[in-house]
């Protein structure tokens, strides 16, 4: 019994260390953003002496941060939605049908994962100019959706493969059409995989900078992270102001996570039939 208690204490110590390490950088952001540059000089790591919103006021000056936020929400939302839809269809085909070249296709699609998006920028820019889509949501959504396809397809195909044939056979006997099998059986049963893929996609699109900056050039079309990246170099010497910018960048996802956390973990666990 003593041994169990000891190991329990050990585990608590490990977990608490983990929590401290995970939270320190965030603590640093949230205490620094209220400080003035002068205060930061002598009080780097402590709590701010007063809660000054001066840095935020300066950040909001002339910048259309709210507009950027809306753009980010629209682009991330649609990219994730379409990417999951297209990937799940493709995954369904690869997991459930036999056709020549199937495994080659799967390998080809998934090996695109290793391709750095940076190299696609110039060829894609040319295509988008031809289509006249520069500075529109469509260009960013089409590109983000495409870039996210390999990882989503990979994840969903594997998950679809793990769903038992018996279920599908039963559905076929009940007279379900292929389409019904896809959206009534495959999709609901794959919720954990879909949630995982959606989350990975969301995080990538939300935080992406290079493509956002190049394809959405006008100030009205900018998304949040590329917009905030303009602060880079501008205020590098003013660390509290930089941290206020960092806070603006992370707060939206932070709020979404804290609100959706319960559903997210539920989505991951529930429906895992296998």
């Amino acid at each position: 019994m003593k041994k169990i208690a000891l190991s329990r204490i050990m585990k608590q110590i490990i977990m608490i260390t983990m929590v401290v390490i995970a939270l320190v950088p965030i603590y640093y952001v949230f205490v620094t953003m209220f400080k003035s540059p002068d205060e930061y000089l002598f009080n780097k790591w402590g709590l701010p002496l007063e809660l000054s919103l001066e840095n935020f006021k300066r950040l909001m000056e002339g910048e259309t941060i709210f507009r950027w936020l809306i753009n980010s929400l629209i682009i991330s939302g649609f990219s994730v939605l379409i990417s999951i839809l297209v990937a799940s269809m493709m995954g369904f085909a690869i997991a459930r049908f036999d056709f020549p070249g199937k495994s080659a296709l799967f390998v080809a699609v998934t090996s695109l994962l290793v391709l750095s998006p940076a190299v696609l920028v110039i060829p894609l820019f040319k295509s988008m100019v031809k289509l006249g889509l520069i500075n529109t949501y469509y260009s960013a959504i089409i590109i983000y959706t495409g870039i996210m396809l390999p990882i989503s397809t990979y994840l969903l195909t594997n998950f679809f493969k793990s769903i038992h044939n018996d279920i599908i056979d039963a559905a076929l006997i009940d007279g379900c059409s292929l389409f019904q099998i896809y959206y009534r059986i495959m999709i609901p049963l794959s919720m954990p995989a879909i949630v995982t893929a959606a989350l990975t996609n969301w995080l990538y699109v939300w935080n992406e900078i290079l493509i956002g900056l190049i394809f959405l050039q006008s100030d009205k079309m900018r998304t949040l992270m590329p917009g905030l990246s303009l602060f880079k170099g501008k205020y590098t010497t003013n660390i509290p102001l930089t941290m206020a910018g960092v806070a603006v960048a992370i707060i939206p996802t932070f709020v979404i996570y804290l609100m959706g956390q319960r559903y997210f973990v539920k989505g991951l666990t529930e429906g895992a039939v296998k």
Partner: peptide
Amino acid sequence: FELVEQNIDTVVTAFKAAAAAKS
């Protein structure tokens, strides 16, 4: 006028992309 501020990284990058497409 459409005045577009670039950041220190993309002031070069975005122009290279534009130049490649001549647009």
